[in-house]
Design a binder for these strands. Structure first.
Length: 277
DNA sequence: CTTTGCACCTGTTGGC
DNA sequence: TGCCAACAGGTGCAAA
């Protein structure tokens, strides 16, 4: 199971960034094609006036947002649930759901495909972190600021279930629904546990699991990273076999008891009621 | 401030 | 076999 219809989690976004950067950084934007501006928010109509003729200074990432820096500001891209980006030769014919192109002076173009259109392409003329979408984000999971003491402090007095808590971007970014279930299984924590009830030791374990899981996934993406020209636009590494996600009724890989499914905040949570307490 | 619920969208899946 | 409702996911935002 790789490529194709993978929901872009943080490792996929980071791998995409690494794949695109060599083609973008230093290249100058010569044109913009907007076939369908109706993403989560409309793609700005005047985008070419914002960045046309300017070189891409850098491609960075904050949470699952890709940030393309120019002298005049930055292009903010989000892949939503079904978005992918790739580099193609100029004049490559667009297919269904290819909503946006950035034309480059190196004979290539960067193309966004996003069937569900939950993604976003925005322009921000100000400093990074002054954009409303970025200003209130929590720490990166791989940053040292995301540590046991931080999570312990952040959870104090909070009544919400830990599953929903770690998916809150104000707490820590990059933990999606799949990773949340997987991380809580590995940490041995039941998803419905009130955040404020976690001990420091359990916070430490959870932080460790989240960091390790994401780091391994990013390394796996990097190790198989080839060429973003003419490929699917999805990082081509094999997805790690799930411990609990999507395994309702199947035997727990640790104790063989059936995996349970519950809804938390309208989202599916999978867990083992014996191994997670 | 905290917490809950919803909207956005379309390809895929499951039930009849 | 065919049809259609339900479902999945990320995340900003409105409402309680």
């Amino acid at each position: 199971m790789s490529g194709g219809s993978v929901v872009p989690e943080l490792p996929e976004v980071e791998t995409t960034r690494r794949g695109l950067a060599p083609y973008l950084e230093g290249a100058t934007v010569t044109g913009v094609v907007i076939r369908n501006p109706r993403l989560r928010w409309p793609i700005p109509e005047n985008l070419l006036q914002c960045l046309g003729g300017l070189p891409v200074i850098s491609l960075t990432r904050r949470a699952k947002y890709l940030l393309m820096e120019f002298d005049s500001g930055m292009l903010i891209l989000h892949l939503g649930m079904s978005g992918s980006l790739r580099i193609l030769p100029k004049n490559t014919l667009p297919e269904k759901h290819d909503h946006f192109d950035l034309l480059l002076d190196n004979g290539k173009l960067m193309r966004l495909r996003d069937p569900r259109r939950f993604g976003a392409i925005l322009w921000h003329a100000g400093e990074i972190n002054t954009h409303p979408l970025l200003a209130k984000l929590g720490p990166e999971p791989l940053n040292e600021h995301f540590n046991a003491r931080y999570l312990y402090q952040a959870t104090r007095g909070r009544n919400v279930a830990i599953k929903q808590f770690i998916m809150d971007n104000h707490v820590v970014v990059g933990v999606g629904n799949i990773y949340a279930s997987e991380a809580l299984f590995s940490a041995g924590i039941a998803p419905q546990t009130r955040a404020g009830k976690l001990s420091l030791a359990r916070c430490a374990g959870l932080v460790d699991i989240i960091r390790t899981t994401l780091r391994v996934a990013i390394e796996a993406g990097g190790s198989t990273l080839r060429d973003f020209v003419n490929v699917s636009g999805h990082p081509g590494y094999f997805q790690q076999e799930h411990q609990v996600y999507g395994r309702t009724g199947e035997p727990c890989r640790r104790c063989t008891r059936p995996i349970k499914l519950i809804k938390q905040g309208q989202r599916s949570s999978f867990y083992c009621e014996y191994c997670q307490t």
